[in-house]
Nucleic acid binder design. Structure first.
Lengths: 205, 205
DNA sequence: AATGTTACCGACCAAACGGTTGGTCAAAAC
DNA sequence: GTTTTGACCAACCGTTTGGTCGGTAACATT
């Protein structure tokens, strides 16, 4: 079983480096050779483990992107406190990694959606599924907020979810260029304003 | 001068078709041959008019993207009425073209920013300049709203601008996949909620 | 009528692409 | 101790890429 362990280790290394380069240079602008050079591995090794470039990327989506997004953007909003506070904290933390130029997987997702949209339906489906998953959990969190008396019962849960996802993906597009830190601060500040407009009118805490 | 006219006509045709394909398939995933095939022109014609693929795209940015964004997202918010109403209408109109699968240049901009970020500093600078131009005009419109008594004086103009740009670019990323019409409706509805939270407290109209 | 200019053609190039193939060698299975 | 397996190598293939270049034909200038 030692062989199997080595196989998995190598495949994992390939995927981590692959995501890094795909994210940095784009999928179509990154060659398999680029990835292999970085790892000092050969073409043969690559095609021994993966069927094709597309298959390789599909594995990356499932094994790296999906899980990270779950950990960073979905699981943190499952809590039972004030939904608005929880979402605020979640976004704040997620954007903080972006400020420090680390891999922000929410942005990675939006980035790839832009790149594959209309070009590769198979990969788009996988990316869309993740987006949908995020949306569902956001809607759930907002509905919980209504039940708990933190959010006004009249607001549309799905509308809020769409608006939040939009804002998050958008701020990341803007943040990449100038003064990410101050842009994050301004963004979070306005998000709190927005939250005030949808919170329950009379505080029944 | 007939020659000069023909030259400009051909160059324009090339740029229009070029933008179409670059937008649909991505810059790096669209070859010059693809564009020329569509136009029944030859490589020689292309390099007779443009220095390189990059030069070609730079011209597209200046001649097509820049002007369209000015017409659709910047000029419409120059009016002197209620800034929040004007911006709402502007976004509503701009997103409507997106619903009908037409070229929405705001999205085109966000799309290319994602593609070129970290890959081509020269092109990124041009795209960034457009983003900055948009931001400046949004800030101006919001400050005008404060002066006219439509917007609460305490809100940060730049924060609002960043938030609005984020939301717009983000909703377009999300709209490309499923039910753009209903997503647009929900988005606009939440944007109005947000606007309520930043409008002047006592209506002094 | 002769000459220069310009828009455009299409064969060509070197480099890079995704993918294939025959082979090596150490560890696992027998 | 022999055989089998599987991770990996490296040369190679057909195709596509951005870009070059010598040529041609229509038009403008003289």
């Amino acid at each position: 079983m030692d062989k199997n362990l080595k196989r998995m280790a190598t495949m994992h290394r390939m995927q981590v480096t692959g995501l890094e380069l795909f994210y940095k240079n784009g999928y179509y602008n990154t060659s398999i050779d680029d990835i292999l050079k970085e790892l000092s591995l050969s073409k043969g090794a690559f095609y021994h483990h993966f069927d094709s470039k597309e298959d390789f990327f599909t594995e990356i989506i499932q094994n790296l992107i999906m899980r990270k997004i779950y950990n960073i953007l979905i699981e943190p909003i499952e809590g039972s406190g004030n939904s608005l506070d929880i979402i605020t904290n979640c976004f704040d933390n997620a954007l903080e990694t972006a400020v420090h130029n680390e891999l922000d997987y929410g942005f990675v997702l939006g980035n790839f959606i832009n790149e594959f949209n209309g070009r590769n339906p198979v990969i788009m489906k996988h990316l869309n599924d993740i987006l949908k998953l995020w949306e569902v959990h956001l809607v759930t969190a907002i509905q919980r907020g209504k039940l708990n008396g933190h959010i006004d019962r009249h607001v549309e849960s799905e509308g809020v979810a769409v608006f939040l996802m939009s804002a998050y993906l958008g701020i990341r597009t803007i943040m990449v260029h100038s003064s990410p830190s101050s842009r994050k601060y301004r963004f979070m500040s306005q998000m709190r304003m927005y939250f005030k407009s949808i919170q329950a009118k009379q505080q029944t805490v």
